[in-house]
Design a protein around this nucleic acid. Structure first.
Length: 937
RNA sequence: GCGGGGGUGCCGGAGCCAGGAAAACGGGGGAGGCUUAAGACCUCCUGCCCAAGGGCUACGCAGGUUCAAAUCCUGCCCCCCGCACCA
């Protein structure tokens, strides 16, 4: 079977016939599902294929179940990453060129042409679309749009008007990572090494100098509660310091800090500069305790961090302790102060910093282990430490920290700044990223309690797959606060209330599923005609239809047709994405639907999936193990890739893609295809029907029933196990018994092709056609489980034969005997009675008592006792009912031909008690229900 | 720290919610078959012991409940993910 040729053939046929273009059809039940649209800043890899294949298999399943299925796709181009990437291409950044060339195999002459955001987006979106088509995704491409399309912009503007009307938008100041050189906000994609700058609050405590008293040193700290333990201040003697004026106060900070702090305090003015060394030996005053503390030199103080000066708490800060120890060893000029305890920490004495430094044998302040020690002590003191100094003595470290911080600020003894805490983070231009307070920042108020309540209601009513993820959504709904929703640059939609800003990317992709339903209509009308009244009417049925129709320049009847089109598809039946979007996009999706749409149009389900691993490890650019989707298709074929990415694990878990597994899928698929082709070409009826035919069909229908049920909760791994591996193993077992009956096989193959069609649609279309079926298998009816074919008896009969065969093989192996004849004895009827007594009574003595009431059993009390012991021991494994001796003999006789073939020996079946010799008798007595005794001769 | 998920053979992982033959299914490894050979394919084996289908050991650790615990309960240890304004 030539997978690639077949794929092309059917993709062409689907496209030509518009097989997946979905329009409203009166009276026909619909199913509308979407997957998170891709961000085209690079080609997609097999990891992306998982979400889309999951969605597509589900779409195909629903379609085969008679639903009118809509599965659209678009492209998300909003935001700054494409800007950064195009810029890097324009500058021929060797790293990005290498990734494009070596990982994504982009032709070398193409790479330099991707030097503008729009060109980049255009190239990659086409690449992604092609890949999706090559995967055979049943997408209605007529509805495709980009988030910078003017029609979409109008839609997003409308959305933000709605949010504003509801009072969900606000403005304020907001700290963002900033590059002072580029004068721009920086995200992870703008930094060297793709480091995401993390911002946290830092406290700058004012330590007035003894002389002159109107100047203070600002000391930066994350632990204001340790103010009681300050023994001295640290400055870096090599650094430059500046006296700044801020809100009528004069402070000393490092010159670097003076620069970066202007981003947070534009009113700040620099007065004069001085070398750090000049402070040494001076004295400052602790603003809380009033203690006089000396200013000492330390090399670990980074001038660019915080204010470039810090307070020293040697009892609790390993760096401070180390710097003091270093200083003591280096000179005799300064007196070395003694540590002062602030917190009590279990497992430590009065000075935890000193202890950990000694325990870890840290050499000095430049030893890398100092960082580790700091983290350990900080974390433990915050969570388990208890204050022993100051007015909050007795409270926990973390609690005291917040209280003392608030006190210092309200008493004007400290100011709060924001700092990048995982720094230094460098912008790609080389400058160090700082924090800027952006004024006039717009927010979406996800902290609104009434809104949260609505969202919780929506969530409670919807289906979450896998169910385990529900707690994640609940938690996220709870902790979401104001979300900054605009940025200074990027592709997308201009913010309607401040056109100098662009709506940020996670905020313009929350209700776009509604837009798909009318995207092709909107495009035809053109952006100018898409007035707020138009959207009000078609999405909410609000306002005047007449006015909306006039604005759109269409007849009222056409407008209401668009409205009905939306109402036909909405609400969304299933939303699909990677599980990583739960904490942002998917929860925003819930919030925005709750805010804008009436309850009956809220989404019904969200399904999220884990990642795809490559040969057991996470795909990453640095490992170079990213498998681009189109390369995978060329290597394995679309059906193999599709099957592999969804069959490896259930949705909630990460799934591994590996060569061995793909090869296994490929060879099995080829084997099935060749069998089906052979069966089609077959003349005559083949072998006669036997017990095993009924067994095969029983198993088949049982599987159909299970698969159909499992689709409701998208248990794709379970489904693929059943439909593929387990079914194929059944078939192999069947062929060990018989050459195959044509009618049985035809029924089996037809159902198998239908069951596999959602996963391997190309091969299944081809086989469907070969079987002489009309139309697309993609549009064929899903098979129904025929309950009358499901036979527990047939399956049990086979199980007896199978187990017996295993036992025979085991005995042969142990004894090394190669029998010429095998005699099987089915257990006597009285043992079957004993079996059910054992099962009902559960305990030996009770069961024995009960058994003795039966004269037939009582007559063989000794033998029965032994048999009962065996049964009770295995109590948990006893079946609710066992076949009669005759039934068991029939099952064994049906399987006799098979056993004869397997063991090349004559097989004779009889009931226990029919044996001739005493030797045979002794053997036969061991027979138990479902476990015939075996005599090898 | 907070929230979530998870520790089962050589590996990936079923089984846990609804306690009752643990290791399904897929890999990897081994033996044999087919084949000129390789590959593909087929059969068997892959915790330990076993000369008649048997026995013993095992689901992170330690307890508990139960006739019966991977599964339920308690405590502990360890690993992974998220904690944003970024797609």
């Amino acid at each position: 079977m030539d997978f690639r040729a077949i794929e092309e053939k059917w993709q062409k046929k689907w496209a030509e016939s518009g097989a997946f273009e979905a329009d409203p059809a009166a009276g026909r039940k619909k199913f509308y599902l979407t997957a998170a649209f891709p961000y085209p800043n690079s080609p997609q890899h097999i990891g992306h294929a998982r979400t889309y294949t999951t969605t597509d298999a589900y779409a195909r399943f629903k379609r085969m179940n008679g639903f009118n299925v809509l599965f659209p796709m678009g492209f998300h181009v909003t935001g700054t990453p494409v800007l950064a990437m195009a810029k890097r291409v324009a500058e021929a950044d060797p790293e990005i060129v290498s990734i494009f060339k070596n990982i994504y195999k982009i032709p070398e002459d193409v790479i330099p042409t991707l030097n503008e955001p729009v060109k980049l987006v255009d190239y990659f979106s086409k690449e992604i679309e092609l890949g999706m088509k090559e995967m055979g995704f049943s997408i209605d491409w007529r509805r495709k749009f980009y988030t910078y399309d003017p029609e979409f912009n109008k839609f997003i503007e409308w959305q933000f008007h709605k949010l504003k009307e509801k009072g969900y938008l606000s403005t304020g100041a907001h700290p963002v990572p900033w590059c002072p050189k580029d004068d721009n906000a920086v995200g992870a994609h703008d930094t060297q090494g793709d480091i995401d700058p993390e911002i946290d609050e830092m406290v700058l405590i004012k330590f007035p100098l003894k002389d002159p008293p109107d100047e203070s040193v600002l000391c930066a700290t994350f632990r204001p509660e340790t103010i009681y333990g300050v023994t001295n201040l640290w400055v870096n003697p090599e650094a430059e310091y500046a006296l700044i004026e801020l809100d009528k106060n004069n402070y000393w900070v490092s010159s670097e800090a003076a620069e970066s702090l202007t981003l947070q305090f534009p009113q700040l003015r620099k007065l004069k500069e001085r070398k750090g060394g000049e402070f040494l030996g001076k004295t400052a005053l602790n603003p809380v305790t009033g203690a006089a503390v000396p200013i000492l030199p330390a090399s670990f103080v980074a001038p660019e961090m915080g204010s470039g000066a810090v307070m020293s708490v040697p009892a609790h800060a390993p760096y401070d302790y180390l710097a003091l120890r270093d200083l003591e060893r280096a000179q005799k000029q300064y007196a070395i102060p003694q540590p002062i305890q602030v917190l009590k920490l279990d497992g430590f004495g009065d000075f935890p910093a000193k202890e950990i430094v000694e325990r870890m044998k840290i050499a000095g302040q430049s030893d890398a282990k100092a960082e580790e020690a700091t983290e350990e002590i900080y974390s433990r003191e915050a969570h388990t430490g208890v204050m022993v100094a100051g007015k909050y003595a007795g409270t926990r470290g973390a609690e005291a920290k917040e209280k003392i911080k608030a006190d210092l600020v309200s008493e004007c003894k400290a100011i709060v700044i924001h700092e990048i805490i995982n720094g230094p983070v460098k912008c790609r231009c080389g400058a160090r990223a700082c924090v800027k307070m952006v004024e006039g920042q717009w927010f979406i108020n996800y902290n609104d309690e009434a809104w949260k309540a609505q969202t919780r209601k929506e969530l409670a009513e919807m289906s979450i797959v896998p169910g385990k993820a529900r707690a994640d959504y609940e938690y996220t709904v709870g902790w979401l606060k104001e979300k900054a929703c605009t940025r200074a640059r990027g592709l997308g939609t201009k913010f309607p209330f401040d056109r100098t800003k662009v709506i940020e990317s996670l905020s313009d992709s929350t209700i776009y599923m509604a837009f798909y339903t009318v995207a092709h209509r909107a495009k035809k009308l053109g952006a100018q005609k898409l007035t707020p009244e138009f959207f009000d009417y078609i999405f909410l049925g609000a306002g005047s239809a007449k006015k909306a129709a006039e604005g759109a320049g269409i007849a009222e009847s056409d407008l209401s047709a668009i409205r009905s089109e939306f109402l036909y598809w909405y609400p969304l039946d299933s939303r699909h994405s990677g599980a990583d979007l739960i904490h942002n996009h998917l929860t925003f999706f819930l919030f925005n639907h709750a805010a804008i749409f009436p309850e009956e149009l809220w989404p019904k389900q969200i399904a999220t999936n884990g990642f795809v691993l490559m040969e057991g490890s996470k795909m990453s650019k640095s490992l170079g193990n990213i498998l681009p989707l189109r390369a995978a298709i060329r290597k394995y074929g679309a059906d193999i890739v599709r099957f592999s990415v969804v069959s490896g694990a259930e949705l909630g878990a990460d799934s591994d893609f590996n060569q061995a597994m793909a090869d296994g899928v490929s060879s099995r698929l080829k084997w099935m295809a060749s069998l089906i082709e052979e069966n089609c070409a077959r003349k005559g009826e083949g072998a006669q029907k036997k017990a095993i035919d009924a067994w095969l069909l029983s198993r088949l229908h049982r599987r159909i029933r299970k698969i159909t049920r499992d689709f409701a909760s998208l248990m794709l791994r379970e489904i693929t196990q059943e439909a593929f591996y387990a079914s194929i193993n059944d078939l192999k077992w069947y062929f060990r018994h018989t050459e195959g009956n044509r009618e049985t096989l035809s029924e089996f193959y037809r159902a198998w092709v239908l069951l596999m069609a959602p996963f391997a649609p190309h091969a299944c279309e081809e086989l469907w056609e070969k079987m002489g079926e009309k139309g697309f298998v993609s549009a064929a009816a899903w098979p129904e489980a025929d309950e009358s074919r499901i036979s527990a008896e047939a399956e049990l009969a086979n199980e007896i034969v199978e187990k017996t065969a295993e036992d025979i093989a085991h005995i042969m192996k142990l004894t090394g005997k190669k029998p010429s004849a095998i005699r099987l004895f089915a257990a006597s009827p009285w043992k079957r009675k004993l079996y059910s007594i054992a099962r009902n009574e559960k305990k030996f003595d009770l069961a024995m008592k009960k058994a003795m009431e039966d004269p037939e059993i009582k007559a063989r009390a000794k033998q029965a006792g032994k048999a009962l012991q065996l049964l009770i021991k295995d109590f948990g494994g006893l079946k609710p009912s066992v076949p009669s001796q005759e039934e068991e003999m029939r099952a064994l006789s049906d399987g006799a031909g098979f056993l004869e073939k397997e063991f090349s020996a004559k097989v004779e079946v009889s009931g226990e008690g029919a044996e001739a010799s005493p030797e045979a008798r002794a053997r036969a007595e061991k027979a138990m229900p479902l476990k015939p005794s075996i005599l090898l001769e």
